[in-house]
Design a binder for these strands. Structure first.
Length: 343
DNA sequence: AAGAGATCCAACCGCCCACCG
DNA sequence: ACGGTGGGCGGTTGGATCTCT
């Protein structure tokens, strides 16, 4: 474990480390730490929207944030990024994580690269809080992916009923879904405002990706690499946001966005947040997704129920995502098998 | 109803590495 | 070649929330 090498860095040590170019953050006592406020989120989001992802160390100053660059980067990657998929992991994602973990170990970033819309942190948390226990429960050592001895399996006291977990009524699931599925009238007064720039993203990501995949077989969902490096997807300049004033109401089917799936934050606030050079709105987010893939086709927007049905029917689509960026560590590995499919 | 324990997950920490001057 | 710097990563923490008694 790394911890044994870690030295408690207090002022004097910290000074030297700073001189060595390491973690200068900790000496800047004035910088804020902890949870991000909606205002901070909005500032960071608007800054990245307007100026793109450049030098993280300069972002806090330019965006007017009392945070270190690392903190801003993390917040963007794990929460504000527009391509994030939210909500429960699907069975396909879960199987893929387990298979990838068997090959890659705790290389969460590499695993996350194979799961569009998921962050390494999210996958790591999911693994530590749930998958590990599930594997142990089913008699598999999560570290080696080999069968546990019977004794070890019996000694595993913590029991997780996975089937029950997948049911909509499971408390843990309700916890994560509540903000998406309750209507504003059901939610009552909002006590903890949250800046949620992409409250529909669960809908957008899965629905649009599915639709695009249907009509454009070459289409692949956005991933972190695309966002950070590809001008084709254009997030560094956010064309969809910058030009959102050109979006008309008729571009979006009224049926495609159900207010019942809005998050608390947006149910309780204006749907448009003004910035100096950009306007934050539902329409802009939606159109960015469409602009991002440069599709000229008019797409039929399916109802939520129809979309979910089709997703279920095409549940194997996820397995078709190519493993494009496995590291050099995998050079010796010929294939990766997921659900009997070889990659 | 209340308190304790368990769990989740956002955020932090420190190490490593690539890049640059 | 070397040191400074920024970014990426995995491990860990601690506050919030949930469950149990």
């Amino acid at each position: 474990m790394q911890k044994q090498h870690q030295i408690c860095v207090k002022p004097l040590d910290c000074f030297f480390l700073q001189q060595m170019g390491r973690h200068s953050c900790c000496v800047k006592q004035k910088l804020r730490k902890g949870l991000w406020s909606p205002e901070e989120d909005e500032k960071l989001f608007n800054h990245i929207t307007n100026f793109g992802v450049g030098c993280w160390s300069s972002v806090p100053k330019q965006a007017g944030l009392q945070r270190c660059g690392k903190s801003c980067r993390l917040r963007w990657i794990n929460y504000l990024r527009p391509d994030l998929k939210r909500g429960m992991f699907s069975q396909q994602e879960e199987d893929l994580i387990i298979s990838l973990h068997e090959v890659l170990g705790n290389r969460w970033a590499q695993i996350a690269a194979q799961l569009p819309g998921r962050t390494d942190n999210e996958i790591k948390n999911f693994w530590n809080s749930y998958l590990k226990k599930k594997l142990r429960q089913s008699g598999v050592d999560p570290n080696t992916h080999r069968p546990l001895s019977e004794t070890e399996a019996q000694d595993e006291k913590k029991c997780i009923d996975y089937e029950a977990y997948l049911q909509p009524s499971h408390p843990k699931k309700q916890r994560t879904q509540s903000s998406l599925e309750l209507s504003s009238s059901e939610l009552g007064p909002v006590t903890k405002p949250v800046f949620d720039p992409f409250p529909l993203f669960e809908f957008q990501q899965s629905t649009i990706n599915h639709l695009l995949y249907q009509q454009h077989p070459d289409f692949r969902p956005l991933d972190q690499t695309h966002l950070e490096t590809s001008s084709e997807f254009g997030f560094t300049s956010m064309p969809g946001l910058a030009s959102c004033e050109n979006v008309t109401e008729t571009d979006i089917s009224e049926n495609s966005i159900s207010t019942s799936r809005m998050s608390r934050s947006f149910c309780s606030s204006n749907s448009t947040i003004g910035a100096e050079n950009a306007v934050f709105s539902w329409e802009s987010i939606f159109m960015f997704q469409l602009n991002g893939i440069k599709s000229e086709d008019k797409m039929k927007i399916l109802s939520w129920e129809e979309k979910e049905r089709q997703q279920t029917e095409s549940s194997e689509d996820f397995c078709n995502f190519p493993l494009t960026s496995l590291s050099e560590d995998l050079t010796g590995i010929q294939t990766l098998t997921v659900h009997g499919r070889s990659f």
